[in-house]
């Protein structure tokens, strides 16, 4: 099975709209949304959820107030300033700051700190009109989004095997940090969607360095290229220098927004040159995979 991951560095360049088009054009593919922080692909693909699974990862420290003597040893040892003193002189863990390292549990002389597993979110297996899909929702203000991304990819790969799918198409997260790294390691091919702005160029360069670091081949698409044709040319030159082939330009087109409002992919929404262009880009992606 081959795996394509669509990423961007900078957010809002059109990753999900383009992933949606790829999903519509692909044959015998399974889909995965790894942008677990702000998952949007389901809004184009309207998945019908077949099964839900809790995502439990890491632990969270919880102090039993009745057993706490307020000695403050936990506070002193917490490297994340995650333990506050209550007005009653007891220690209390701030769950937003706690990283689940277990140091407080270890050092508490009263053994007054519990360490239950943390329910961080949920992942789903679904059907869409373009094939099966694995997606997830990270709980609000939760950690471990990288691990949830890994779970989504692993489950999608397992389903691909089971359902004899030969392609996995992944909508990746923005940025270059832990969720992105979890999305791209070991993938067959990255498709980097960028825009012709200084920020777009800056962020694409960082993402291509990351691709190189993890030895994943990458292709580049410049979306809304006609906003700044000179910058588009610069980005394409820059992508070659970064070891990635520019494979297409997509002009600014409000049809993307209209399609999104109608809950459809662009290739379902309209016809003509804009769609032909996307099909050509998709064919290039497929050729590169072979």
């Amino acid at each position: 099975m081959k795996e394509i991951v669509v990423i961007s560095g900078k957010g809002g360049t059109g990753k999900t709209s383009i992933t949606g088009c790829f999903a519509a054009l692909a044959e015998n593919a399974i889909l995965a949304d790894c942008d677990v922080d702000a998952a949007d692909l389901h809004m184009l693909l309207a998945p019908e959820i077949i099964s839900r699974t809790d995502f439990i990862s890491g632990h969270e420290a919880v102090i039993r107030e009745d057993d706490c003597t307020g000695c403050g040893i936990c506070r002193k040892n917490c490297k994340f300033d995650a333990i506050d003193l209550t007005s009653e002189g007891k220690c209390r863990v701030n769950p937003f700051s706690c990283e689940g390292c277990m140091v407080c549990v270890e050092v508490c002389p009263e053994k007054a700190i519990d360490f239950p597993p943390n329910l961080c979110g949920e992942w789903y297996f679904s059907h869409t009109r373009f094939g099966p899909m694995v997606h997830a929702r990270l709980g609000i203000a939760q950690e471990n989004s990288g691990k949830l991304v890994s779970t989504v990819r692993r489950e999608a790969a397992a389903k691909a095997e089971e359902l004899k799918k030969d392609l996995l198409i992944v909508d990746g997260p923005p940025g270059i940090g832990c969720p992105v790294i979890a999305s791209i390691t070991g993938a067959s091919l990255l498709v980097v969607v960028t825009e012709p702005t200084i920020s777009g160029k800056h962020d694409m360069k960082r993402v291509l360095q990351l691709a190189k670091h993890f030895s994943v081949p990458a292709l580049v698409i410049v979306n809304k290229w006609d906003i700044n044709p000179e910058m588009t040319a610069e980005i394409e030159k820059e992508s070659l220098l970064g070891g990635a082939h520019p494979i297409g330009r997509i002009p600014y087109d409000r049809a993307f927004t209209v399609a999104q409002i109608n809950g459809r992919t662009l290739v379902e929404e309209t016809t003509g040159a804009v769609v032909e262009n996307i099909i050509t880009i998709w064919e290039k992606v497929c050729r590169k995979l072979k």
Partner: peptide, 14 residues
Amino acid sequence: CPPGTSCPVIESIG
């Protein structure tokens, strides 16, 4: 702030 709703955002708006 960074985009999203997970730990980097919470840290930033804290």
